[in-house]
Every structure is written in C-alpha cells, then in structure tokens.
Simulated scan of single mutants.
Amino acid sequence: MSSIADNIGSVTRRIQKATLKAGRSAGSVYLLAVSKTRPADELRTAYSAGQRAFGENYVQEALDKMEELKELDAIEWHFIGPIQSNKTRQIAEAFAWAHSVDRLKIAQRLNDQRPPTLPPLNICLQVNINNEESKSGCALEELIDMADAIEEMPNLSLRGLMAIPDPDQPEAELRSSFRKLANALKHMRQEASGCGPLDTLSMGMSGDLEMAIEEGATWVRVGTALFGPR
C-alpha cells in the first residue's frame, strides 16, 4: 500500500511530465491536495512530504483542522466547496483562497468580511462549464460583468476561473470543457484586465490532470490519488 508521501511524489512527477509535454515552464502548475474528510494527521503527513496547499469543502471541518495544525508554517488553505452566505465570514477570515465564488453576493460578502490585517483574498469564479443543473457556478456570459464589479472590491484579488466538468463525459467533450474555460480566461484578460492578475485556471483532478494541464490548468485539485478513496 502506497504511503501519502509516495503518492505525492508520484502525482508531482505526473504534473511535471505533463507540464513539460505541454511545452509549459517547469513549476507553472501547482498541486492542491483535496483534503476534505481526511483527518488532520494525514494532512500533517502530506505536509511533512512537502505539500503546502490544501483544499477543503466544509467550513467547520476545515477550521477544526486549522486549529490542530496551527503550528505548521506556510500551510495554505483553499476553500473549494459551495459557499453559503452564512459561511462567508469564516472563509474570509481563515482562508487564503476561495476557488468557488459563483455570484456577486458572495464576492461582496467576502470582500466586506475580509479582515483589513490580511492580504486580499485570492478568488476564482466558478463556472458551470457544462450547464449542469446539479452544479454550482456562473454562466460564461456573466463573467465580464462579475469581473468588472469585483474590480471595485479592494479586499479581493480575482485570480481566475475554476470549473468541475463532468468527469464521466467522453474524453473529447471533457477536453472541450477544459479548453472552453481556458478560452474564457483569455477573453477576461482582454476585456476585464484591471481586476486582478487573472493568472489562474483551477481545473483537473486525479483522473484527468494531464489533460487539464495540456489545456492550461495552473492548479490541479487532487484527492484520491494522494490519500486513497474516501
């Protein structure tokens, strides 16, 4: 049975190989360890193996882990689950990133509740790239207006886009979904250039990270390949 450290090494090599194959610069793709439902001890093991960025879906679970792991320097917490209005204050106060901002109301609350002593909260707009009724996310045609509005929010830094395409769709359609998100980010850079770095594409998981990297991913969100099945 592979250890978490071995798995991190294996996934890191996959990322490096895919990055070079895509003709992209080494180090341009980051690994986000999806640690939802995993105990703090497993995160500590991953940290000891060099992992620093962890993605959580549930606010209270994440806050409990933050308390357990508070002695770990440079650990970086990313919120990647659906954001409820009554949880925005905790996210704004405790996280470095929120990948799943899907409407302006949530962005405004995160901005207003971000403590002034902290740097701006890095956010991605979550896009419902396949227009699935069961998925959170804004529509592609909403992105420019949302980006323009977020430009006026000083406590947020709009870094880019996130999507969770249906992993069960045919490979060609999955690739098309990744490409569609990458093209949307390019369009945002042209039309809404004043609102943040717009340097981030959060897409790709354990089974499709190579394809996501080929299409421009900068963060791949990997859980099962690191920690095993939940």
Rank of each mutant, 00 (worst) to 15 (best):
R179F: 01
R221Q: 06
L125G: 06
N130F: 05
N7R: 15
G27P: 08
A62Y: 08
I123V: 13
I123G: 05
L140P: 11
S10A: 15
D112L: 01
A5S: 09
K21H: 00
L181G: 03
W97F: 11
S2N: 12
A53L: 14
N183W: 02
V222A: 02
I83N: 13
H78Q: 01
L63M: 11
S177N: 09
Y47M: 05
R14Y: 01
P170Y: 09
D148N: 11
P119G: 05
A184W: 03
W77P: 00
I75H: 07
M211W: 03
L201P: 03
E191Y: 09
K87W: 03
T117E: 15
P82Q: 15
P154E: 11
E152S: 14
G194V: 07
D64R: 12
A92P: 09
R114Q: 06
T117I: 08
A62G: 13
D6R: 06
P197Q: 11
E76C: 08
T37Q: 04
R38P: 00
F178M: 10
P39Y: 02
L20G: 02
I150L: 02
L31P: 00
V11F: 09
V59P: 10
G216M: 01
H187C: 06
G23F: 00
L125C: 04
A40W: 10
S206P: 09
E56L: 08
T12Q: 10
E173G: 06
A98M: 12
A172I: 10
S25A: 14
A94S: 15
N183R: 12
M146R: 15
N86I: 10
F95A: 08
I164M: 14
M205F: 03
E67Y: 04
S28Y: 02
M205A: 03
L72H: 14
S206V: 08
K105N: 14
M203H: 04
